[in-house]
Design a protein around this nucleic acid. Structure first.
Length: 118
RNA sequence: GGAGAGGCCGGGGCAGCCGCUCGCCCUUCAGGGCGGGAGGAAAGUCCGGACUCCACGGGUCAGGGUGGUUGCCAACGGCAACCGGCCGCGAGGUCAGGGAAAGUGCCACAGAAAUCAAACCGCCGCCGGCCCGACGAGGGUCGGCGGCAAGGGUGACACGGUGCGGGACGAGCGCACCGCGGUGACGGCGACGCCACCGGCACGGCACACCCCACCCGGAGAAAGACCAAAUCGGGACGGCCCAUGGCGACGACCCGCGUCGCGCCGUCCGGGUAGGUCGUUCGAGGCCGCAGGCGACUGCGGCCCCAGAGAAAUGGCUGCCGUCUUCCCUUGGGAAGGCACAGAAUCCGGCUUACAAGGCCUCUCCUGUC
RNA sequence: GCCAGAGUAGCACAACGGUAGUGCACCGCUUUCGUAAAGCGGGGGUUACGGGUUCGAAUCCCGUCUCUGGCU
């Protein structure tokens, strides 16, 4: 996907974590924050605690990215979305991730921003 | 046919659609076309280098590493060939494999004794007492003196082992063979091998205990480092304004007055530097093929090829057909379901180590059977 | 990317190269009307794993795995 659809800067991640709203499902944890752009942007965070092997973490990133690519027009526009695996040892299935992504992104986007403790 | 030893290959294949990333080209700046796009271990980070920056006059010491020999290599703790010990009938495997007469230390328990030797049970001789016999010969027993280290027993290990002779019993006391040590000749670049002679035998083990000897080693690491450079902050230079005729400081030798400059504001420029960006960044001790040299590791020459370069980090998703394995079903023959490892580049090379499904190949050894 | 440290009974920890122990926990007994505490007795270990040195290894050496921590 194009570079402008991705979340790149360290500052962007910190802004979303600080101001964003969260929604959790069986496979995904979505953090959403408005970005003043006419399209959504994607950020990924897959740490070593999910899988020890790099291959498996790459697999999760690729499935998440593919789900975002296929559903980007069904997502609420003007939001930055950070996708985090909801639990360790996740073996992602594309169809489930797609439907859950749309559902959780809409839920998070409509929720009221709630200031989190630093 | 069975049981083994050593080494190697492999890492599913072909298409279609939708995507990602890099390079080149076209472009109406929307995009389009063509080509490249994970590994043998990319892994662990255990060694060695290249490349950067820092430090640096030399030597010694300290600290760390290596440890049969000769070679290969940019270098190595890697590799090759050879030597020696141990294991295996063998093919082969394995070994940090220098020094224990430079010094220090340790060797528990058991045992008499664990290393300048020593003697528990013992064996033998002499002397004396007692007993049997007869007061003798001979024998038994107790004590003393002396000789011995063969046998028993302890142990992981006990001044070498086996045999013969010898002797009161014994003992390298003598001899033969083996082992050990020394000297010399010969072969080999060398580790070492082999032969002869001499010595009757002493020098237990542990340096993967400290240590000694020989050789090697400066430190940090691409988040190294170089360049460009917003916003903000403060620094410097120049110009202008303001001087409330005030405040502080400097200068005009000193005091008073007075004057000039600066501290203030604005503008321009300069250098430092953060976010961010660019380079380093992929052509290299590079692959493949052939010829030549070498037992080999490897080297030389010639030809051909360009083979990932991301950066909150690309190499993906879906589908069809074929291959292969397992299970099940009807049983010429097919069908269905499920599976097809270990694992993901981050500056780059040379090794080592570890992980790895199914399958396949080469060489060699031993046993058995048949011709 | 780079670099340290640790691994011993269910838990927390000991152990000059010479029979692996201590406390808590567990089981049984004593004590009590009963329980707790206390006392006595007992079980429980491939010393993370695989090799090597040594007569002998938790300890020394090499490799592997796991965990923890640090720098950036």
């Amino acid at each position: 996907m194009h570079r402008h659809l991705r979340l790149v800067r360290k500052g962007d991640f910190e802004r979303v974590y600080k101001q964003g709203t969260r929604a959790r499902g069986g496979a995904l944890l979505v953090v959403a924050a408005p970005n003043a752009l006419p399209h959504p942007r994607l950020g990924l965070s897959v740490g070593r605690s999910i899988w020890k092997e790099a291959v498996r973490r790459n697999r999760i990133r690729r499935v998440f990215r593919e789900a975002f690519r296929l559903e980007q027009h069904s997502l609420p526009s003007g939001f930055d979305l950070i996708l985090i695996p909801a639990r360790p040892k996740l073996d992602p299935v594309l169809a489930e991730v797609r439907s859950e992504l749309v559902q959780l992104a809409r839920k998070a986007a409509s929720a009221k921003p709630r200031p989190r403790k630093p």
